[in-house]
Design a protein around this nucleic acid. Structure first.
Lengths: 233, 233
DNA sequence: AAGTGGTCTAGACCACTGA
DNA sequence: CAGTGGTCTAGACCACTTT
């Protein structure tokens, strides 16, 4: 490790990244080809390839056949977050978790929901509303619709015992999903439910997931005021 | 392609993923080892390894030496988004972009900002405030502090021409960063600046970036009401 | 047409970690 | 200590793009 010869792809990865951070290779610059780097670093081309592939995956470089590898002219920055199950999130704060089921009924959804779930307006879906508490304080208000055609098993689950949030995450795989965040003012009904005053600013997230071409569920979570969502860059 | 033998890692990746979605291999299940899968699919172990590595990276499976590969019991869901430069974001909506520099001054920051930038309370930093417009409507209010010790070059940039947002993204690399989102009510000052009424709910994001152990910049963006931030799962 | 990245292979050795 | 994933190598062929 002390000498100059590095053989792991992580070492190569770091060397190249350092050259980019140093601005030895500034944005837009064409960096040496894989064979050349392999010679320079004294390793196989495959190893250099692995290092460069990781850098490309995180957007640090752009690669094109024949054109070569260039340091990316950052046009966007990627942000990422791990969204845990609500119970885990509450318990991670050292608070006691509890949730209360307000509604659990199969019925006809609004046109907007039917469209989101891609079901006919005449079809039914499972509507669930609940409040999640942290140390007996309202933390999140959940309004969820589940496509029972996709997930018929949900009807046999006791959703007063296990929250739909948790059961779905653990038992239902999905192939794609969307997650939208916005700020909203509390209305009278929500303010009452969460014990807030009207017109407070709260963060809301709407998540919709799909299994192949069939919708699974769409859920809107309304967080208590002051809630912060953290991401990594 | 028409026959059953697949040789690319993407094909192997998809076959395995399908077995997981099918619940052929339910959450928690131990799936066959790399050598076994390589035999079954008629390819090299390296290729299976590549496929499984991608699945592990996206959290679909958990891998441990000796213990083998298991289908992940999803405890978290990862969400991702590409955050573009503000100008690009506005122009992507088909709107005309313009920004107005409200302040551009080197001065002593508040204690909170000094702490965030990890500089002494007596040191100075560059304070920038501006408004970004979409079709002449206020879109984002920006409040930024730049660590001039880390980025001395910033002093030579005409920030009335090129927004700090854009210049930094294109010219300054970073090694890590944090991104925090929350909902806030507009105060009187902000309402005036953006032409809003008081107490409207707006989304704010605060981003802080680092170059090795030195802070680069911390910026708070306040989006106009109704703004939605989209993520992929 | 030629150059560069993308990937596959077969074999080898290493590094963890569970039994 | 033995089994499984993690990685490296050398060579080969392929696929995409730019020239």
């Amino acid at each position: 490790m002390a000498n100059g010869r590095a053989h792991t792809w992580q070492d190569i990865h770091e060397r190249i990244k350092r050259n980019i951070i140093n601005l030895t290779w500034p944005p837009g610059e064409l960096i040496p080809g894989e064979v050349e780097l392999a010679q320079e670093y004294g390793c196989a081309r495959t190893t250099v390839n692995r290092a460069l592939r990781e850098l490309a995956a995180t957007g640090v470089v752009d690669r094109k056949r024949k054109a070569g590898t260039r340091v990316a002219k950052q046009k966007t920055r990627q942000v990422r977050a791990e969204i845990p199950v609500i119970r885990t999130q509450v318990e991670a704060q050292g608070a006691a978790y509890r949730f209360q089921l307000l509604e659990n009924k199969i019925k006809q959804p609004s046109k907007a929901i039917a469209k989101t779930l891609n079901i006919k307006a005449s079809e039914v879906a499972l509507h669930i509303r609940s409040i999640h508490y942290a140390d007996e304080l309202p933390f999140i208000y959940e309004d969820r619709w589940i496509n029972v055609k996709t997930i018929p098993k949900i009807k046999q689950v006791d959703l007063a015992q296990t929250s739909a949030n948790e059961w779905l995450v653990q038992h239902v795989p999905f192939t794609s999903g969307e997650f939208v965040i916005q700020a909203q003012n509390t209305n009278k009904k929500l303010a009452m439910a969460l014990g807030l005053s009207v017109d407070e600013a709260i963060l809301t997230s709407t998540r919709t997931t799909w299994l192949e071409s069939k919708s699974v569920t769409t859920v809107t979570l309304k967080y208590s005021p002051g809630y912060q969502m953290h991401f990594e860059i």
